[in-house]
Write a protein that binds this DNA or RNA. Structure first.
Length: 572
RNA sequence: CGGGGCGUAGCGCAGGUGGUAGCGCGUCUGGUUCGGGACCAGAAGGCCCCCAGUUCAAGUCUGGGCGCCCCGACCA
């Protein structure tokens, strides 16, 4: 490609809408342009990167034995009634009607459609395992689209669905995909971790997220450098490093007047103690029923853990009115002693405490020196806290660290969640009808691009991994109007092209500095500079974007050197 | 959905107390330059988000709406 024939509208100033580095650089380098909130055009350069990632995914999926298909974006509401997700998915599900007033859905994911396909086409255990995948647009009417293509309303996803005759085989299919995902993200040149994750509203028994490590990531992962345990913060288990004071003798319970002190900070300051010596009582409504959760004053309650433990569809914090009704005190004075009409659960870390502070379920009153069993009973100690840096690993006891990441892929073991509701059955070897066991596996293509940029950039712009760079090589022809430079540039351009090198020739009538800046901004891994040095001395300068390393080679060595660099950088 | 901010040239922005709309970058024309975002001269480009209202007069004041961004709640 000659730059003058391409459309690469680089910007000097970034539109004010961009906030994170990948979004800024994608706009600045002319990869994308916004159409509306959460909707983007991919311009030629951005689409090239997209296309490369798509091909890597396709190659690895095919290698793993998955079958590529194409499902419609629009799907009938009937399928969504069957699984109940018409009601459960909420406002995020894009719904529309056709001219006959029939309800349709713009698919946010395709379990319904693919399960419908599987139940009609797969009849025997002999037909399995099968894994169908597609690479297509998805729609989610996000509450708040943000960070450019990172969280958009329409996006391209590779989604795959496995169908197996039993759990064991399904496990094999899952492992197979897990490996394929590792290969895909490795080939894309990303620094990533596969972590245990929550399965959200896709459902299923367990799942992994593939997180690209990046400071700007929306998700937090907790990992153990000692044993390799890694999990999404939403899911992670950990042991509080705090040892508590369980050796202390029990002191006498006392009710203390704490006028107007209702936050943890206020109460501990007033009572001259520490947050670690206070137990928070958090009141929730779980599917309409009240429940209390106790965590240490310096810990945070992990709502998802509580919700999962309770098996509740909906878990919301009580409103101020509800708190008054159930605790008979204003917000800020709830406590487990004397709290009736609901189950009480406490975080494991709380079990190690003695003589702690709790609310007294009475305005402006707290108890000090409260203790379990002696003063009140709870239903169960469970893991309820948000894990954090410094916590201890549940597997090996080493200290955990916390990292930010971008979720680029998610694998789920679905079990029979969808096959049951949609009656996706087959005839097994023993002549009995059985439910298919499913798995589903997604990759957000645009997120891979954004994540790669979050990981590869400097003050001058993007630094692409070779495998997904829009071009391998940029020939920066200084003063292309000069006959000699033009002739040299053109001949090298043609030669590299015939060798299969993806090359862009900057033939624009621009000053040298301008072209260098642009080349760096769009992040092409290898730059060949052709100027007077090439004309006069026969030396061609090669500069590597990633390291800044520069060296000059002779004309006849040029293309070999270039292909050598490309091969070395390309992860196979 | 709650809180905050912003809508003026393609992009970034400025336009106290109302009085015919400006700057930088980019674009176009001509010329000079040509190894790190060149220079000179000239030019084009505006429903000032929309709709009402106040006023002799609204980018500016008032009301309503729409769009966009950020934080939160929520969540692929």
């Amino acid at each position: 490609m000659k730059w003058s024939k391409a459309l690469i509208p680089t910007l000097k100033e970034v539109p004010a809408e961009a906030d994170i580095i990948s979004h800024k650089l994608m706009l600045k380098a002319g990869l994308i342009r916004k159409v509306a909130s959460g909707l983007y055009n991919f311009l030629p350069l951005g689409f090239k990167v997209y296309y490369k990632i798509e091909n890597i995914i396709r190659e690895e999926m095919d290698k793993a034995g998955a079958l590529e298909i194409l499902m419609p974006i629009l799907s009938p509401a009937e399928l969504w009634y069957e699984t109940g997700r018409w009601g459960l998915y909420g406002k995020e599900l894009m719904r529309l009607k056709d001219r006959a007033n029939r309800d349709f859905v713009l698919g946010p994911t395709h379990e319904e459609v693919v399960t419908d396909l599987a139940r009609t086409e797969i009849k025997s255990y002999r037909d399995m395992p099968k894994n169908f995948y597609q690479i297509r647009n998805k729609f989610r009417d996000e509450i708040r689209p943000r960070f450019g293509v990172m969280r958009s309303r329409e996006f391209v996803m590779k989604d795959a669905y496995s169908f197996d005759r039993n759990e064991f085989c399904s496990e094999e299919s899952y492992k197979n995909m897990f490996e394929a995902y590792n290969k895909i993200f490795n080939r894309c040149g990303l620094n990533f971790r596969a972590v245990e994750a929550d399965s959200g509203n896709i459902g299923g028994s367990f799942s992994h997220e593939f997180m690209v490590i990046a400071a700007s990531g929306e998700d937090t992962l907790i990992s153990c450098s000692a044993c390799g345990y890694a999990a999404d913060k939403e899911k992670a288990e950990s042991i509080s490093a705090s040892s508590g004071n369980e050796k202390e003798d029990l002191k006498t319970l006392e009710k203390i007047h704490t006028p107007g002190q209702h936050t943890v900070e206020q109460v501990v300051a007033f009572l001259k103690t520490t947050p670690a010596q206070l137990v928070k009582t958090l009141l929730y409504m779980a599917d309409g029923k009240p429940v209390a959760a106790l965590v240490k004053g310096d810990d945070e309650l992990h709502e998802i853990k509580l919700q999962r433990f309770l098996g509740a569809d909906e878990l919301v914090m009580m409103t101020a009115e509800q708190v008054e009704t159930y605790s008979k005190a204003p917000v800020g004075f709830a406590g487990p002693l004397g709290l009736s009409g609901m189950k009480i659960f406490a975080d494991n870390a709380v079990a190690k405490l003695r003589n702690f502070v709790i609310g007294a379920n009475e305005k402006d009153m707290h108890y000090i020196n409260a203790n379990f069993d002696r003063d009140f009973k709870i239903n169960k100690f469970i893991d309820l806290r948000v894990p954090g840096e410094g916590d201890l690993c549940v597997k090996c006891g080493a200290a955990l660290s916390s990292l930010k990441g971008i979720v680029v892929g998610h694998t789920y073991k679905l079990g029979t969640k969808y096959s049951k509701t949609m009656k996706a059955e087959f005839l097994d070897e023993d002549g009995k009808r059985k439910l298919m066991v499913m798995g589903c596996y997604g990759i957000g293509l645009a997120r891979v691009i954004a994540a790669a940029i979050e990981q590869g950039n400097d003050e001058n712009g993007i630094i692409w991994p070779m495998a997904i760079a829009p071009y391998h090589v940029i020939i920066t022809a200084l003063n292309y109007k000069d006959e000699k430079i033009k002739a040299l540039s053109d001949s090298i351009y043609e030669e590299l092209k015939t060798q299969g090198v993806e090359v862009i020739l900057d033939d624009r009538d621009m000053s040298a500095g301008f072209k260098f800046k642009d080349a760096e901004l769009i992040g092409i891994p290898v730059r060949i500079t052709i100027g007077n040095k090439a004309v006069n001395e026969g030396l061609f300068e090669i500069k590597l974007r990633k390291t800044g390393e520069e060296f000059a080679v002779k004309r006849e060595e040029l293309s070999n050197k270039v292909t050598e660099i490309i091969l070395k950088e390309q992860v196979k």
